[in-house]
Design a protein around this nucleic acid. Structure first.
Lengths: 204, 204
DNA sequence: CGGACATTTGACCAACTGGTCAAACTCACG
DNA sequence: CGTGAGTTTGACCAGTTGGTCAAATGTCCG
């Protein structure tokens, strides 16, 4: 496989199929729980054929992670320091919630990895994500100092948003089981909107 | 091994060691990621010796889960319908948070299993836990109807407490990495207390 | 002490898993 | 068509893993 030439039609199709299949399998079983054979057949390929496109299971996982991280963090980058504070935060919450609903596999992929100590993500966490979180903290602190939102611990605020929104994807089985027949996502937007509005409305 | 006789001194010691080791290994690697050998050496036994006490890896896992579930759910059962609503809920939040800090392995054990679809817990979830959640919902609804706490979706309220408190244990690596050098658990109690106090204070 | 029962071990096995390789096959293109 | 590059495959391999078994060793108690 010539990696330094522009990819052929077949390469494009197969690489896309592999990543799609890998997302399915890794998000459901975690890295160690997933087998190359599972991914291969989910992608409609034989195992050696899959390994013709990616040199190892690890390589598939790594590429998948790095391709998805940007998407996953986009809403956080989109927070506008010059926007209305309450609207920005409530909007971020709703966007994250929507992502949990639309992309539960991505959420679980990261959840699986982090619960097990994030052995393949720790570098990204402590550099790229750390910077982004630091920047967000500054924004939140500015809003709090200006009295636009109530003063709370900015990092805990951010973690709480991640926690609450991703919970619906990561623990979907549990939420589904305990909410049936109600649709968990039906009342979630309003619940979270109310929660953050009450917590963050300044008490002058 | 005579299972129908009272356990010997050695049986008691070894069984305890095995479950302790299993908690370590399963919570860090999930069911599939854990190996019988890992558990055995963590318990100071050889693999065949371990399998003399438990017939299979699955059996260890199952026993571990069922033994821990009672402990894990105790704070929820302890909510007193006749107590002061706000105090009961804030107390429950603090107890759950304390458990995340003191028993992070237990939290991650369940988290690992549920993220991956809870194949070995789904029965428990849909019966025992379901009943407990149903009962709690009734309590919450009573308090809301009486105007003692603000009206919010009772199940989402409960899930939010689980989510926020267990987040500190389940995603410990991430939280640690992004909060260093601050101790995540230092500000958490106050943050959660404020959050739920503001959300649940009735707006008459 | 001695025997019955409990515990431990090393050798072993079959299934699974990640990965390799040479040979066969397919495709684009002149 | 033909040819060279791109693609696919079956056979294979070594390491890991859950689990078995008979034999060896340890412990308890009369």
């Amino acid at each position: 496989m010539a990696t330094d030439r522009s990819p052929t039609r077949i390469q494009k199709r197969n690489r896309a199929n592999i990543l799609e299949a890998a997302l399915d399998v890794f998000s459901q079983n975690g890295f160690r729980g997933a087998t190359v054979d599972q991914i291969a057949s989910a992608a409609g390929l034989s195992k050696p054929n899959l390994l013709y496109y990616y040199p190892s299971k690890e390589a598939i996982f790594t590429e998948l992670l790095s391709k998805l991280l940007a998407t996953w963090l986009a809403p956080l980058r989109d927070i506008d320091p010059k926007g209305d504070p309450m609207e920005e935060i409530l909007g971020y919450v709703q966007r994250k919630l929507q992502m949990s609903q639309d992309m539960p596999r991505e959420s679980r992929l990261f959840a699986n990895e982090i619960v097990q100590g994030a052995p393949r993500m720790i570098d990204t966490l402590s550099t790229e994500l750390r910077e982004l979180v630091d920047a967000t903290e500054v924004i939140f602190q500015g809003w709090m100092a200006a009295g636009k939102i109530a003063s709370v611990h900015p990092r805990h605020l951010l973690f709480s948003i991640w926690s609450l929104t991703q919970h619906y994807a990561d623990f979907e089985v549990q939420v589904q089981t305990l909410m049936t027949p109600e649709d968990p996502f039906a009342a979630a937007p309003e619940f979270l909107d109310t929660l953050y509005r009450r917590m963050l409305t300044p008490t002058t």
